[in-house]
Design a protein around this nucleic acid. Sequence first.
DNA 1: AAGCGAAAAATCGTATACGATATGAACTAG
DNA 2: CTAGTTCATATCGTATACGATTTTTCGCTT
Lengths: 214, 214
Amino acid sequence: MSLVIRTLSDQLVDLVRNRILSGVVSSDHAIRQDALAAELGVSKIPLREALARLEEEGLIRSQANRGFFVSPMSASEAREVYDLRLTLEPEATALAARLATETDHAHAQETLASLYSVTDEHGEGVGAFNRAFHRALFRPCGKPITINILERLQVLSERYVRMHLEPLGRDERANEEHQELLQAWLARDADRVGALVRAHIGKTIEDLHQQLGE
Amino acid sequence: MSLVIRTLSDQLVDLVRNRILSGVVSSDHAIRQDALAAELGVSKIPLREALARLEEEGLIRSQANRGFFVSPMSASEAREVYDLRLTLEPEATALAARLATETDHAHAQETLASLYSVTDEHGEGVGAFNRAFHRALFRPCGKPITINILERLQVLSERYVRMHLEPLGRDERANEEHQELLQAWLARDADRVGALVRAHIGKTIEDLHQQLGE
DNA sequence: AAGCGAAAAATCGTATACGATATGAACTAG
DNA sequence: CTAGTTCATATCGTATACGATTTTTCGCTT
């Protein structure tokens, strides 16, 4: 699939990230490097490189000579992450709608189809496909740094979605919104795309605030 | 000074970052890990961890089995970086002006004084102190992720400042702007702070565009 | 002479092994 | 019985050494 050769460290980044997002590792006690390395069948060096990258992403923090801890979740962080997405993502997605090629269109449609196929199962991976869909919509905007920031924000926000929104079966409504968004995006209706993304994120913020009991 | 123990990798991050920003390593040919490690008197592992972190920051890119290359500079990247700063930094700095404590005030004043003292020399470190000053102004905003993103953007933008603006002796006017900005910031005049930061960044964008020959 | 192919050199990526630092428990003193 | 201290254990951080991949150079063929 991937034409570029992926180094072991890069693979570990995705693997450990998914573990953290799945909530497998608890927020409080440290990550045992040796144990995790042994469990994954690799050595410590590539694992440490992966952890260093994840620390830059903001998912974990390291205390010298004490180890890596997954960053604690907080209502304020959730608020900040979604505020930032609200600031950046609508504009980027709208721009991408204007610049998208036929290949991008096909890719976005495929991604949403995959999202549908896994939603029913309510299993793992829903968040990952959700991320992939939104990513497919803003990637063609042609702004590498913006894309990078948005991807980071998506990762940080996913924990809150998984913890507070997924149990409520909020997927149904999200899917309708996704479908509507995709149609506008494919039609290159930039203004409508921006508005929809803004509404989508805004709604998520509201739901989160309700859950977090503000 | 620093109460927290800094690991060797972290120190290398700053060191290598400064090397790249100084333009010591050219944009095209790869970074020799062994050579650089030997030159710095350390081993490869901590150096690689530092490089992995810098890659997440966006300063360098790695091709598998080929090595690390410093990201090429481009007019479009410069444009994007400053657009993002224009989107995020004024608001953050204005908010910080409202929330800043006496300690923060003292720190900001110290930082600007240090900036003055090194400006005359036109030597190294001007960029670093410039970064430190602006950082001191937005750090008290209390939004960790925003702070992190802005710091990354500062690093990315510094290369363009060093290359295109520093040779022009633009420091004088910048210092006046800095002084004005600091006064408004100390007075907690959030609106004025926002406007001044916006103007400061906007002016830099204009100067850059002129230099980059658009 | 130019282009293609193979072998050698160099560099990157990874595994193993060692020293340094922090945590936890046991022991002694008050 | 409690608090402080010391020692042992466990984990992290780093240096050294080895295998894999890529690049370059040399030789050969056309």
